[in-house]
Every structure is written in structure tokens, then in C-alpha cells.
């Protein structure tokens, strides 16, 4: 453990690259696991499917979760994370394009720790990723199993 992993759940490869770029630019060198849809995200967290056999004691210190995902949506991923003992205490930040009130309400109701709307302006986007990265990987204390 002590890798202080970031799980980035994002289906858009451009957003993946831009997020990685923003992390790198800000010297956040944590290991980043990328899940391209909700299924991959849950597989990683539970050590199933493509991540079968993974030591699930090692859980990410932060899940950066997009909402609009193929197969299993971000909201469903969040619900699963919160309902499962193994993952229920992992911090989840919703990172999305939408500012629909109902998404925010639902996200917080399901137990999201934060809700960030990805700005169009890359400098603002990079700043948001920097603050998120520093806060959740460096300052925030997570419960380790």
C-alpha cells in the first residue's frame, strides 16, 4: 500500500490525457489507475473481472468519477461504492461536465465527497485538478482497511 492511488473513472481519452497532464504539471506523482467505464471501475475496486486477483486491501485514496459513462453510469458506481463495506469509506469526487441541479443533489445524496464541474478553460481545469490532487492525496487522511 502507501501508493496513494488515484482512481480516475473517465471514458473520454482526451479528458484522461488532460487530467494526467494537469496532474503532471502540478507535480502530483501518485499512481493513477484509469477505468474507462463503470464496470472497469467496480472491477478495480472489488478485484473482479479484468482486475481479478488484485489485492483489494490497496484501495485508492480518491476516486475521480465522471458521471456519463458507458455500461454502468457514474451514479451507479457511486451507489455501489457506498453500499459495499470494502469501499464505502473511499472518498469520491464527482468530476463532470454537468451542473444540472438534479445530478448535484443525487450525487451528494449518494454520498459524494465533492462535486466539481470541469471548466472549459484548461488553466482553470488544471488548477482544479491540482487542488483536488493535493487535497485528497496529500492532506486528507483516509481510513485504511
Amino acid at each position: 500500500m502507501e501508493d496513494r492511488i488515484i482512481l480516475l473513472v473517465e471514458d473520454n481519452p482526451d479528458d484522461v490525457d488532460l487530467t494526467l497532464r494537469a496532474l503532471k504539471k502540478n507535480n502530483i506523482k501518485n499512481k493513477v489507475i484509469i477505468a474507462k467505464d463503470g464496470v472497469e471501475a467496480l472491477d478495480y475496486l472489488h478485484g473482479t473481472g479484468m482486475h481479478a486477483g488484485r489485492d483489494t486491501k490497496d484501495q485508492p485514496v480518491i476516486v475521480m468519477l465522471d458521471l456519463k459513462l458507458p455500461k454502468i453510469s457514474g451514479m451507479e458506481v457511486l451507489r455501489d461504492i457506498r453500499q459495499n463495506e470494502r469501499t464505502s469509506l473511499i472518498p469520491v469526487v464527482i468530476l463532470t461536465s454537468s451542473t444540472e441541479q438534479k445530478d448535484m443533489v443525487e450525487g451528494y445524496k449518494l454520498g459524494a465527497n465533492s462535486y466539481i464541474r470541469k471548466p472549459v478553460d484548461f488553466e482553470q481545469f488544471a488548477e482544479a485538478i491540482k487542488l483536488l490532487g493535493l487535497y485528497w492525496t496529500l492532506y486528507n487522511e483516509t481510513v485504511q482497511s
Binding site: 482526451d14 488532460l18 470541469k118 471548466p119 484548461f122
Partner: peptide
């Protein structure tokens, strides 16, 4: 709100 903003982020980024 979701789909039109996403490509803009790529263009700007």
C-alpha cells in the same frame, strides 16, 4: 451541458 462542453475542453486543452 454535458456533450457540447466536452469537445470544447479538448480543443482548449
Amino acid at each position: 451541458s454535458h456533450d457540447l462542453r466536452t469537445p470544447l475542453r479538448s480543443i482548449d486543452g
